[in-house]
């Protein structure tokens, strides 16, 4: 399979008044065409910042990429010219945000916003662009697309707005889509509609998909492989079936163990103790060590590298073997 996107040892920091926040501290992941990578991790772990760096929309300053490389279809993105990157966005890579209402322009009709893509990138006339907009709305199953193409974002329900965002991302048939919590703000029944649509379009167009989420259920449903982030690092990567069966990092194991299970009804849930660290003061050694049930002295002094656990599997834990075994 051809590697579509390859992120290597990416580091991003925010230089703020309170100090330097090390938001991303060595992220490695890759996605192939037609593949879905789920990026999982708690709030503030650097999932969105990594995605913004890939898309070239990092808030800079205060954000700075201090190390690492990003390859997209073989090209080294970080050495590309600003204009060349702008050309890629929308046409070859696109992003879907969590909050469609704030991502869409409130004073432009959705038809105008969808059509704009074709006017700018494909040089279509307004009229042809509008026809394409209707097609797209049909495709993401907005009922009565023709009548509603002139409506404004607030006139649609949350689920419909999210589908319009998907339509916008799909418009130019990009090779890579990054969906940042695309269904978090939606109800479960609507979430199911939207995920189904996204998966279907991805299959059809053979796109690479990076799905950022904190929902272990959604991951199990759609992902081919997972990257788990903690305090700005990837702590574990694995094919989806393997990680649920036997996690190789104590953080992943803790997350899976804290899902309520039927046979535990009425009992205490397993809970990872403590809190995620402040990015201004990441603990030395393994960032997870203050919360980790497996931690030994070495975890407080030495930062664990990403150990290869099996082909296509890696874990940043000194005791990955012990974790894997039980």
């Amino acid at each position: 399979m051809d590697t579509l996107l390859d992120v290597r040892d990416l580091h991003v920091e925010f230089r703020t008044r309170d100090g330097v926040a090390k938001a991303v501290n060595g992220v490695n992941y890759s996605v192939n065409a037609g593949e879905t990578l789920a990026v999982l991790g708690e709030s503030g772990s650097g999932k969105s910042v990594t995605a913004q760096a890939v898309m070239g929309i990092l808030d800079s300053p205060p954000g700075h990429i201090t190390r690492g490389r990003i390859f997209f279809q073989g090209a080294d993105l970080l050495s590309l010219h600003r204009e060349a990157r702008r050309q890629l966005r929308g046409a070859r890579m696109a992003m879907i945000f969590q909050d469609a209402l704030s991502a869409l322009n409130p004073v432009l009709s959705v038809g105008a916003q969808l059509g704009e893509m074709f006017v700018v990138h494909r040089g279509l006339s307004r009229r042809d662009a509008r026809a394409r907009a209707v097609e797209l709305m049909d495709r993401v199953r907005i009922p009565a697309a023709k009548e509603r193409v002139g409506d404004y974002p607030h006139q649609f329900s949350g689920g419909m707005r999210q589908r319009i965002m998907i339509a916008m991302a799909m418009a130019l048939e990009p090779d890579l889509i990054i969906a940042d919590e695309p269904t978090t703000a939606l109800d479960v029944t609507v979430q199911a509609q939207v995920m189904e649509l996204l998966a279907e379009l991805q299959r059809e167009m053979h796109m690479g998909l990076i799905l950022i989420t904190h929902d272990l259920g959604v991951v199990a449903d759609v992902a081919d492989k997972i990257a788990v982030m903690y305090a700005g690092r990837i702590v574990e990567t694995a094919p989806v079936h393997e990680i649920y069966k036997a996690p190789a990092h104590p953080y992943t194991k803790g997350l899976l163990d804290s899902i309520p299970r039927l046979d535990q009804k009425g009992q205490e849930l397993y809970a990872i103790k403590g809190l995620p660290p402040s990015l201004l003061r990441i603990p030395p050694g393994c960032a997870f060590n203050p919360r980790c049930p497996m931690a030994q002295e070495v975890c407080r002094t030495d930062e664990p590298p990403l150990y290869e656990v099996a082909p296509h599997r890696a874990s940043a834990c000194h005791f990955w073997k012990e974790t894997l075994d039980g």
Partner: peptide, 13 residues
């Protein structure tokens, strides 16, 4: 509603 809830088990997919 219940059928729409994603189950955290890839084997159940």
């Amino acid at each position: 509603l219940l059928s729409a809830v994603p189950v955290p088990d890839p084997e159940a997919r």
